[in-house]
Computed example of a mutant assay.
Amino acid sequence: MPRNPGITDEDIIKMYKSGIPFKEMVPIIGLSDRAIRNVMYKNGIDMNREQFSGQPRKHKVNENFFKTWTHEMAWVLGLFVTDGTVNSKIHSISFTQKDESILRLIAEYMDADYILAPITPTRLTPTLIINSKEIKKDLEQLGITANKSLNIPFPDVPEEFLPSFVRGVIDGDGWVQKNGYVMNVTTGSLFFAEGLLSVFQSWNLQSEITKDIENGRNTIYRVKVKGKVDLPKLAKIIYNGVTDKSFIPYKKNRMIKHLK
């Protein structure tokens, strides 16, 4: 079983020390779990028995984070439903973001250790890993499960926290026109698209859903808000009162620059 191109002993050791279980390392590295153990032995690494069984190493995290609605929780949840992944095999979730400052802020809000998955030929974007059975269970109660992209529902978010949640969604899968008056959010779930459209309509925004076929198979839905009046109005709703850094700066700048 050949090692995947570009994977070094140092990469394997970093994966192990980050808490990734052996059965999850196998497809990334291209070696059997026995061969991975041999790399550890060769380099004198003291191994954790729990990782042989596929159980993730415990890291610090506030396991009650998704139990109580706050503006920080709603924003993180919005990011997660768009850029997050629930591991189907182990009690682990992950966030993927090009901007590491966003991942660091998520870890700060969740009182979590800042553990990034190793960069590999198939994983080039920074990915924050959080191991917690309780958090995974709380997300499932919100309707967020593994393989969520095509069927995720729009969570039942209290009205007070909808602006923060929508801001997180836009930060995750939103696109804001640089000089124009269009914002759209892309999703593979019609249920989520219809829920988001309903929120925009409740805010009296000019909005619509369009759809495209991706790679000739899956339908992709785009929920749009557009117009010289409506885009600034959306910006005012989702950024009003935000005093911390819970937003992606360039998206905020493109949305608020039309505000008088």
Rank of each mutant, 00 (worst) to 15 (best):
residue 2 P to T: 14
residue 13 I to Y: 06
residue 14 K to Q: 11
residue 15 M to W: 06
residue 27 P to V: 12
residue 27 P to F: 13
residue 34 R to E: 04
residue 38 N to H: 14
residue 39 V to K: 00
residue 44 G to W: 05
residue 46 D to R: 15
residue 50 E to R: 11
residue 51 Q to E: 15
residue 53 S to K: 10
residue 56 P to K: 02
residue 57 R to K: 07
residue 66 F to A: 03
residue 77 L to N: 06
residue 78 G to S: 08
residue 79 L to I: 11
residue 96 T to S: 10
residue 100 E to R: 12
residue 101 S to E: 13
residue 102 I to H: 01
residue 109 Y to F: 13
residue 114 Y to C: 04
residue 121 P to S: 06
residue 124 L to P: 03
residue 127 T to R: 13
residue 128 L to P: 03
residue 130 I to M: 02
residue 131 N to G: 00
residue 141 Q to K: 15
residue 143 G to D: 00
residue 145 T to P: 07
residue 146 A to L: 07
residue 147 N to W: 08
residue 150 L to R: 14
residue 158 P to E: 12
residue 163 P to R: 07
residue 167 R to N: 10
residue 172 G to V: 06
residue 173 D to K: 01
residue 173 D to N: 14
residue 176 V to T: 05
residue 180 G to K: 05
residue 181 Y to W: 07
residue 185 V to S: 01
residue 188 G to D: 01
residue 194 E to Y: 00
residue 199 V to N: 04
residue 201 Q to N: 14
residue 206 Q to D: 12
residue 206 Q to F: 07
residue 208 E to K: 15
residue 210 T to F: 00
residue 212 D to L: 05
residue 217 R to T: 09
residue 220 I to S: 07
residue 226 K to L: 09
residue 226 K to S: 11
residue 229 V to H: 12
residue 230 D to T: 01
residue 235 A to R: 01
residue 253 N to T: 11
residue 259 L to Y: 01
